[in-house]
């Protein structure tokens, strides 16, 4: 029987900065190469979504203008998303999408723009953008991996009770001070890494796919793929940074 995974690309029209759609492409291809069928659905402003029906939810980054638009739209569906997350939905949230899942965004003038409040962290506007290549060390299942990407964010994020995704080896990460990058809760992976993150960091992609299958109780052996290109691309940046 063919296994089908359903991917929700949230607000591709709004959260579409910096090639982040490459994350969806990577998830899709690495499933396809193993004979797993993938259906990608794009969800836009005003659409009603049942998050639990998906296997992978992707939220990218957007410009400030666009992020304000959707906080209010998504606000009505927060409970639905929260339930799915507690039920181990696999989520990748990058940059703006990452900030949105948190409690609030503190503007320079002191106003708090509320986030969805699903995860325990907040973001405050920094006085200069954190821009550049970044290398992060993290634990993915039983594997220790080094990932690379490009960060470009004006906000600084400070974690509350959630775990960081990894440790900054080079670059800024969440706020440039505490050495943390991203956030991790159940199967939710949050990160500032563009590049995009998943294509050249194949270990994360495969871990997400396996978690998605596990959630559906699918007994599927995820065979290794030839990752020569991915590893080379990653090591070029690691060698430059470390």
């Amino acid at each position: 029987m063919v296994i089908v995974l359903k991917v929700c690309h949230l607000y591709p029209d709004l959260l579409n900065l910096y090639g982040d759609r490459g994350n969806v492409i990577a998830f899709y291809r690495r499933c396809q190469w193993r004979g797993i069928e993938v259906k990608v659905e794009e969800v836009n402003l005003g659409d009603q979504v049942d998050f639990s029906s998906y296997d992978f939810l992707f939220m990218g980054g957007g410009s400030d203008r666009e992020q304000n638009l959707l906080a209010s739209d998504l606000g009505e569906q927060v409970e639905n998303l929260k339930t799915a997350i507690e039920d181990n939905l696999v989520v990748l949230a990058i940059c703006g999408g990452y900030q949105l899942l948190g409690k609030y965004y503190l503007m320079p003038d002191g106003t708090r723009v509320p986030g969805l409040g699903i995860l325990d962290y907040y973001t405050e506007a920094g006085n200069k953008r954190l821009i550049g290549n970044i290398a992060v060390n993290l634990q993915m299942g039983d594997k220790e991996v080094y990932i690379t990407g490009f960060e470009n964010h004006g906000g600084k994020t400070f974690l509350g009770s959630v775990e960081p995704l990894g440790k900054v080896m080079s670059g800024n990460g969440n706020n440039g001070t505490d050495g943390h990058e991203g956030a991790r809760y159940k199967n939710v992976f949050c990160s500032y890494l563009h590049g995009p993150l998943l294509p050249k960091n194949a270990a994360i992609t495969d871990y997400m796919i396996s978690q998605a299958l596990k959630r559906r109780n699918k007994n599927f052996f995820l065979n290794d793929l030839d990752d020569t290109f991915e590893k080379r691309a990653n090591s070029v940046m690691l060698e430059r940074l470390l």
């Binding site: 090639g19 759609r21 490009f150 470009n152 563009h194």
Partner: peptide, 9 residues
């Protein structure tokens, strides 16, 4: 441009 993520667009 130091960021090459645009290749994915």
């Amino acid at each position: 441009g130091r960021d090459i993520s645009w290749l994915w667009d």
